[in-house]
Design a protein around this nucleic acid. Structure first.
Length: 470
RNA sequence: CGGGGUGUGGCGCAGUUUGGUAGCGCGUCCGCUUUGGGAGCGGAAGGCCGUCGGUUCGAAUCCGGUCACCCCGACCA
């Protein structure tokens, strides 16, 4: 009789599969407080690699890292009307400190536009102080009503960029550059997720923004996940916090601002984009462990060989781990590495040594074949590149196969049952959007006829992408 | 907040209808044999049954309160 599957198959129950995978691949545990999570070392390793890749791109975009407090005076939140309305329901508020009730309650940041603007208004005086480009890596808290590990947790980790510019055009261009060159590039080329870049509708816009740019990924079950956003804030916060600069002449002008963020939600997106019934599949460029060299048995010749191979691969620039835990049966270890999604396994036993070969198991396309041990260091980089490209291609093929053109609301709802629908935005409009919302279907974003990001919602030929979302 | 559900060793569950002092699988520990796909056999440890109160000779089980968590909706990176 066959053993029970390691994970609940995706086709049986996708949410259950997701939970099983998070547990068995040791990515995270639920925290003791509702909606919180403990990120375990392997899961945190995925986040750390995301941080490294993102941080390099953010710095290349000219932003500098800084850190602002997590405690914000409640009065700050109320300065921007739409912002407070948007976030008030999900705030965690500290009312006591040092055993006494506080004079003014303190809000645990749900996002930092307010406190950062308080300081921007001090730091920005002259046009020479602009643009001001700041990023911070931080935790934020939002009291979500329905938490899900990595996708929507009460506390999550993210980066939030905040910038101030002299003109609308500068701010607009910067938000757009972050959208494509930082986020789009990272998600496509590192995560291997074929995200769609577009604009949010007025309904879906960030509280306090004049424009929200989004990156939407299609998950394995056809639902959409908002992977990141870049906002144009216009002068809304500048007016609320009186952030002005002096032009060449004597007159003062409000700054134009942007904010943008991606979070640990991307870990959830990674799992649901690339995972299969055997576990996670980590794109090689992201993987903290790109290859594991696995000793099948614990005899001295085998152990010496796996260590030697490990050293060679490391010298060749591959991120490698040697698994010589031969007190654990081979099958157990193979399954565990598969669950964790390590792209390549090099399996070495006594039989292989006789032939000068090893078994190379590829997690991403699947399959296993013998390869020459001496040729490994030269062979693997190319294979890692192939597998990186394969994940992106599979992601794109799924999105294309499960996206259909639709003409009316009924067809849109039907399309959203299995994937995404594309419908003319001019025909759908805000009214159609509201009707879709009643059925749990939302407009994920608006794209231009040629697939680019449109400058305005009502540009000729704009298409709304509609779907169910996490 | 509306609707549904569940709290029993680390994890997953049975036992509750018909009160009699707690059991199974996985995991853990020890020993031997194993290691080419989730090991086998033998032995062992581990639970005042979410919590407070009531009924009873006796409560995981019946009654009442309370807390927590999960699932489905509205909100969101």
């Amino acid at each position: 009789m066959a053993k029970a599957p390691v994970l609940t198959p995706q086709a049986d129950d996708f949410p259950r599969w997701y939970q099983d995978l998070i547990n068995k691949a040791e990515l995270a545990d639920n925290g003791p407080v509702r909606g919180t999570m403990v990120i375990r070392p392997y899961g945190y390793g995925l986040w750390e690699r995301m941080q490294q890749e993102m941080d390099a791109r953010i710095k290349k975009a000219g932003a500098q890292n800084a850190y602002f407090p997590m405690f914000i005076p409640q009065s700050y939140l109320t300065k921007e009307a739409e912002h407070v309305e948007g976030f008030a329901p999900e705030l965690a508020v500290v009312t006591h400190g040092g055993g006494k009730e506080l004079d003014e309650p303190i809000v645990v940041r749900p996002t930092s536009e307010t406190i950062i603007n308080e300081y921007f208004s001090k730091w920005v005086q002259s046009h020479r102080d602009l643009p001001l480009l700041i990023n911070q890596w931080a935790n934020v808290v939002r009291w979500e009503l329905r938490p899900r590990v990595f996708l929507r947790t009460t506390e999550f980790l993210w980066q939030e960029g905040h910038t101030a510019h002299a003109t609308y055009e500068d701010a607009h261009a910067y938000a757009s550059m972050i959208h494509t060159d930082v986020y789009g590039d990272f998600m496509t080329n590192v995560l291997g997720i074929d995200v769609v870049l577009g604009r949010k509708t007025a309904k879906e816009r960030f509280a306090g923004a004049i424009n929200t740019l989004t990156l939407e990924g299609m998950m394995g079950d056809g639902k959409a996940l908002q992977m990141g956003t870049s906002h144009e804030l216009g002068q809304n916060f500048a007016k609320a916090f009186n952030t002005t600069y002096q032009l060449q002449g004597a007159e003062r002008e409000y700054v134009w601002q942007t904010s943008w963020g991606v979070s640990t939600r991307m870990v959830g997106g990674l799992i649901m984009s690339h995972g299969d019934d055997n576990g996670l599949r980590v794109p090689p460029r992201l993987a903290a462990v790109q290859a594991v060299v696995l000793a099948i048995k614990g005899d001295d010749a085998v152990l010496a060989k796996v260590r030697e191979i490990g050293a060679q691969l490391e010298a060749a620039g591959i991120r490698v781990v040697v698994d010589d835990r031969t007190d654990t049966p081979f099958g157990r270890r193979a399954v565990d590495w598969e669950l964790k999604g390590v792209p390549l396994r090099i399996e070495v036993g006594p039989r292989d040594l006789e032939n000068g070969t090893a078994m190379l198991a590829r997690r991403i396309p699947g399959g296993k074949e013998p390869v020459s041990i001496d040729g490994l260091a030269a062979l693997l980089p190319g294979i890692l590149d192939e597998d990186q490209a394969l994940l992106l291609r599979q992601s794109r093929e799924r999105r294309e196969a499960r996206t259909v053109e639709v003409k009316n609301l009924d067809e849109a709802v039907e399309a959203a049952a299995t994937g995404w629908g594309r419908i003319s935005w001019a025909e759908l409009g805000a009214e159609g959007e509201a009707k879709l919302a009643e059925q749990g279907v939302s407009v994920r974003c608006i794209v231009a006829a040629d697939g680019s990001v449109p400058a305005t919602d009502d540009q000729e030929g704009n298409v709304a992408i509609v779907a169910r979302a996490y």
